[in-house]
Design a protein around this nucleic acid. Structure first.
Length: 478
RNA sequence: CGGGGCAUAGCUCAGUCUGGUAGAGCGCUACGUUCGGGACGUAGAGGUCGCAGGUUCGAAUCUUGUUGCCCCGACCA
């Protein structure tokens, strides 16, 4: 059986993943170390993902803003834990001018900044500074901000979408008058992420709080959504932090309460990034390429005219009419009337994961029918139906695909989670090559013996079980 | 930043050991025959062999240095 992507997932998962990205024309490595170029088809997916997320953010009363890319180095000194977390991976801007020296452009030694800037790895500090000025009274609270920006973390080992030096994300930053409110907010955004991933990306997630060892630098509580990839590894797809008063105290975010007293506020921050795209691709795709849920597919339907010399114009015209009809009922459609051979067009759009493929040949044109194939189910789902029937049911078919993809991953995930009673059982499972998440009592994992297993099997604590926080999920991760 | 590997056509790679005019497959272009889940033939286009030095009559090949990439670690959304 020939597959469009080689090697297959089973043969070599990480190589399959890289080839998938090339085959689906999503992104490529750039000339800049650790940074990727997201190509138009990949970016179109991101735009759809972003728009869906943005709607949800705004529905929570959050407004978008935009803070500077560069952060004064001094801001990082203000929150000790935070500095420690990020110092190792910061890019720093030290000059403001280039000069031609010995025929080469170089930073001008005479243009060194007295105070270097850090390219933001995240924006808690610079937003904290602004909030300290914007928040004066309890009437200014809550203040809810979000920004869609790029950030930079100098990664040692980049992987397309999963870990790149520069990445795009949304980072939300909210301020509240009380700890009850900030903690409730962190949890609310956490739930929003889980809902989004299930309903938009068709990815069920494991929700829970990070253990103290894995918490965000400078947070009291970190809530995470963890996805399970097809190879059993975990992907941290979004985090929501209850920052307590750490940043409020460091940056002087205070409000005058009704009691006339000045009180430090409570902040949260919450983010999801282009890493989610990696999760999306790794979760749903197969050995023939990408499989996209309709909600984030740039083209939900591709119409392919099966042409021969004598019928090209008529068929292309007919296919475009079908395309127009579908657009008029709100479906994103591409009519591939390019002059490539029909099988080449089919494989091209199979590899790019278009949820529904519509083939039209002379026969269909005469009979007023269409042949429709679902990407998620493959060739066996090929059916022929009348144009009227299809127009009436196309949106429903897309909804069904969206739903079925979520259910399929839920089913797969059930087999990926194993209950473990003690460390001996955990070790023998790992030793036997068992993949996936292992659920074990948290207090069994706070000792040297467990640290040894972390070292030996490259596992980590992903999060506490939301349903019973005395349990923790352990897995290998990206 | 440690350990290993690689750098030759758009892509995957051979050629390097043993120095002698730059190769294959895929992809691309044209034409013909094909045509509903990866067709075939013919003809073409396409590379200062990562970069800089050294050895040599002559370097993709030997040598020194350098840069970048990949894999495995440490770090991480």
């Amino acid at each position: 059986m020939k597959t469009a992507i080689t090697p297959t997932r089973e043969e070599n998962f990480s190589e399959w993943y890289q080839n998938l990205i090339t085959a689906a024309d999503l992104a490529e490595n750039s000339p800049v170390r650790g940074c990727m170029t997201i190509k138009p088809y990949g970016w179109a997916i991101w735009e759809l993902m972003r728009d869906e997320m943005d709607k949800r953010i705004k529905a929570n009363g959050v407004l978008n803003a935009n803070f500077p890319l560069l952060i004064p180095i001094d801001f990082f000194n203000k929150e000790a834990e935070h500095v420690a977390g990020f110092a190792k991976e910061c890019a720093v801007v030290t000059h403001h001018r280039l000069k031609m020296i010995d025929g080469k452009l170089q930073p001008d030694p005479d243009a060194e900044l007295t105070e270097p800037y850090v390219i933001r790895p995240t924006s808690e500090t610079i937003i904290g500074e602004a909030m300290s000025r914007w928040v004066q009274s309890y009437r200014d609270l809550p203040l809810k901000l979000n920004q869609w920006v790029n950030v930079m973390r100098w990664e040692m080992r980049p992987r397309l979408f999963l870990r790149t030096a520069e990445f795009n994300w949304q980072e939300g930053h909210n301020v509240f008058a009380t700890h009850e409110e900030s903690n409730a907010d962190a949890r609310k955004m956490h739930k929003m992420y889980a809902e989004y991933m299930a309903n938009v990306l068709a990815i069920p997630v494991i929700m829970g709080e990070k253990t103290p060892e894995e918490r965000f630098a400078g947070a009291d509580h970190t809530y995470t959504v963890e996805q399970i990839m097809q190879d059993g590894k975990a992907l941290q797809a979004g985090t929501s932090h209850d920052l307590g008063q750490h940043f409020a105290k460091s940056f002087g975010i205070q409000y005058l309460g009704t009691d006339g007293k000045l009180t430090h506020a409570w902040t949260t921050s919450w983010g999801t990034s282009t890493r989610m795209m990696g999760g999306l691709f790794m979760t749903h795709s197969d050995d023939d390429g990408l499989v996209l849920p309709p909600a984030v597919a740039p083209y939900q339907i591709v119409v392919i005219p099966i042409t021969r010399d004598e019928n090209v114009d008529a068929l292309n015209k007919f296919a475009n009419e079908i395309g127009e009809q579908l657009r008029s009922i709100g479906i994103r459609v591409l009519v591939d009337d390019s002059d490539a051979r029909a099988p080449d067009k089919m494989w091209k759009w199979i590899k790019r994961g278009v949820p529904l493929r519509v083939e039209i040949g002379s026969r269909e044109m005469e009979e007023k029918t269409l042949t429709v194939t679902r990407r998620d189910l493959g060739k066996s789902s090929k059916t022929t139906l009348s144009i009227d029937e299809f127009m009436a049911s196309a949106q429903k078919m897309l909804n069904t695909i969206q739903h079925d993809m979520l259910v399929a991953v839920e089913e797969r995930n059930k087999k990926m989670i194993t209950d473990i009673k003690d460390l001996a059982e955990l070790e023998s499972a790992l030793e036997s090559g068992k993949i996936g998440f292992f659920r074990i009592k948290y207090d069994l994992t706070t000792n040297d013996e467990f640290d040894g297993l972390i070292e030996k099997y490259k596992i980590s604590r992903r999060c506490l079980d939301e349903k019973d926080p005395t349990y923790v999920f352990v897995a290998k991760s990206y």
